[in-house]
Structures are given as C-alpha cells and as structure tokens.
Simulated scan of single mutants.
Amino acid sequence: MDAPQGNAIEVTGLGVRFRRNRRGRRSIKAMFASARRRMPQGEFWALRDVSFTVRPGESIGVVGRNGQGKSTLLKLVAGVLLPDEGRVRVNGGVAPLIELTGGFVGDLTVRENVRLTAGLHGMTREGVAERYDEIIAFAELEDFQETPYKHLSNGMKVRLAFAVVSQLEEPILLVDEVLAVGDKAFRAKCYRRIDELLADGRTLFFVSHNERDLQRFCTRGLYIREHRLVMDAPIDDVIAQYNADNAA
C-alpha cells in the first residue's frame, strides 16, 4: 500500500461546541439574548484550540479522562462531526473502527449487511465478493449468513462489524475502545489484525483507557485535559503524566 504524501492528518485550531440540554428548541427571545454573549446559554466547548499533525505510518494514542473530548476528536477526524472553528485535514481515506455496530440494518441478513456496509465504506462489489469469505470467517458467522442482523447477539454484531471495517484498504485507522469489547479470544484476533495493518504501513489514531493497548500499538501520545490538548509526547511519557494528574 502506498503511503499518502505529506501529513496523514493535520489539525489546526480545532474547536467544537455542544448544547448541554438538547431538549426542545431555544426561543427567539433566548436566541437574541444569547447573541450578545460569547457563548449561547447552555452550550460548552467539547474541544478548543487543538492543533497537531500526524505523519503517515505513525501510531498515535489519545489519552484523557471521560468527557474530555477524545471520542469527539476521533469523530472530527472521521468526518462524522464538523468543527465550529479551526480545520481538520485528512490526507487519504479512513477506516473507522468506532461505534462499530452503527449503520447495520436489523432486518437485513448478515450477508446483505456485509455487502451494504462494505459498499457504503467505498469497497467495490468485486472487492466485497473477494473478501466476503474472509470477513465471515473472521467474524465466526459461517452458520449465520442468512440470519437477520437483529437476531444476532451483541458479541456477534461486534465481531461482524470489526471484520468488515478491518478489511477496508484505507490508509488511516481510527480506533475507539473497540478492543474493550468481545471475549478474550476475539480481542486476541483483533490485536493480530491491527498488527497486520500497522505492518502494512497504516496510520493509527487510537483512543483507549487501556495502557497495555496504548503501549502495544502506539509510539506517540496526545493528552486531552479540560477539552484542550495539553501534551504531545512519546506514549510512555503521556501515560505517566496522565497517571500523575489522576493519582488518588
């Protein structure tokens, strides 16, 4: 696989904000009143003033407490969310191993969902046909190919989703806690598959709380604290700082 030219990911002055309470709409009066403020009432910055670059083939681990914006950052890089300020530039396609079971259709069979989901991610019909047996074997669903997706167990759904997305030939992998799900044997299979993809020169952008996983796959870390990037350093140094900040 040819590496993309230039940086794989460029993030400059990135910021995104959300409403704390999404129930109902703001009134016209409230909208006019909030226009005088820097931030409309009830909104907060999930990320603010975040800048970094990722070179092709780098393995980056994103560290931080829950609710600080790690998964939001991953979704911004994936293009699922749009920033309110700043810019995200991604040089090459992404294989998003995030919210794995999203996008599958309950009434369609396993076979139909493989074709649909892989196609939506850009895999050609010929590519799906070529990889179909490998996808099913990885997911261990040989006996469930004609079963409606909604009748699968949660573990089966996760195995199927990982099997499909990990077959994409995109140069950038976005991974969000996916290795925290499934049984021990499945996690070991996921580890081996990610090792194969990294050996092929893929770029990894990995959000996790698991120090062993971060140290296994990543060489560099980004530490998100209070919705801002506070440290960009070797992964061991980032983990040590994160643990020191959160020591009881």
Rank of each mutant, 00 (worst) to 15 (best):
D2P: 15
D2V: 12
A3I: 13
P4I: 11
Q5M: 13
Q5P: 11
Q5K: 15
G6P: 08
G6D: 13
G6K: 11
N7H: 14
N7V: 10
A8W: 05
A8L: 06
I9M: 10
I9W: 05
E10A: 08
E10Q: 14
E10F: 00
E10D: 15
V11R: 05
V11P: 02
T12K: 14
T12M: 05
T12H: 05
G13L: 01
G13S: 08
G13I: 02
G13W: 00
L14R: 03
L14Q: 09
L14K: 00
G15C: 11
G15Q: 03
R17Q: 06
F18M: 01
F18V: 07
F18W: 07
R19S: 09
R19P: 00
R20E: 04
R20Y: 10
N21Y: 13
N21F: 13
R22L: 09
R22Y: 00
R22H: 08
R23E: 15
R23H: 15
G24L: 04
R26S: 10
S27G: 14
I28E: 07
K29I: 10
K29W: 13
A30S: 14
M31I: 15
M31P: 01
F32A: 12
F32P: 00
A33S: 13
A33D: 13
A33R: 15
S34I: 08
S34R: 01
S34L: 12
S34V: 05
A35T: 10
A35W: 13
A35C: 02
R36N: 03
R37K: 15
R37S: 15
R38A: 15
R38I: 05
P40C: 07
P40Y: 07
P40Q: 08
P40G: 10
G42F: 11
G42H: 07
E43V: 01
E43D: 06
F44Y: 15
F44T: 12
W45M: 04
W45F: 13
L47F: 04
L47V: 06
R48V: 01
R48K: 14
R48Y: 05
R48I: 09
D49Y: 08
D49W: 04
V50W: 02
F52W: 06
F52L: 05
F52I: 10
F52V: 11
T53P: 02
T53H: 05
T53F: 05
R55E: 13
R55S: 11
P56E: 01
G57H: 10
S59M: 11
S59D: 04
I60K: 03
V62I: 15
V63D: 09
G64S: 02
G64C: 01
G64E: 00
R65T: 12
R65E: 11
N66Q: 07
G67D: 09
G67F: 14
Q68K: 06
G69T: 08
K70A: 04
S71C: 01
S71L: 04
T72N: 11
T72I: 06
L73T: 05
L74P: 03
L74Q: 04
K75A: 03
V77S: 04
A78V: 11
G79Y: 08
G79Q: 05
G79L: 04
V80I: 14
V80C: 04
V80Y: 02
L81K: 03
L82S: 13
L82N: 08
P83E: 05
P83V: 06
E85H: 13
E85L: 07
E85G: 12
G86T: 10
G86Y: 08
G86E: 11
G86S: 06
V90G: 12
N91F: 02
N91R: 11
N91H: 12
G92N: 07
V94H: 02
V94T: 14
V94M: 00
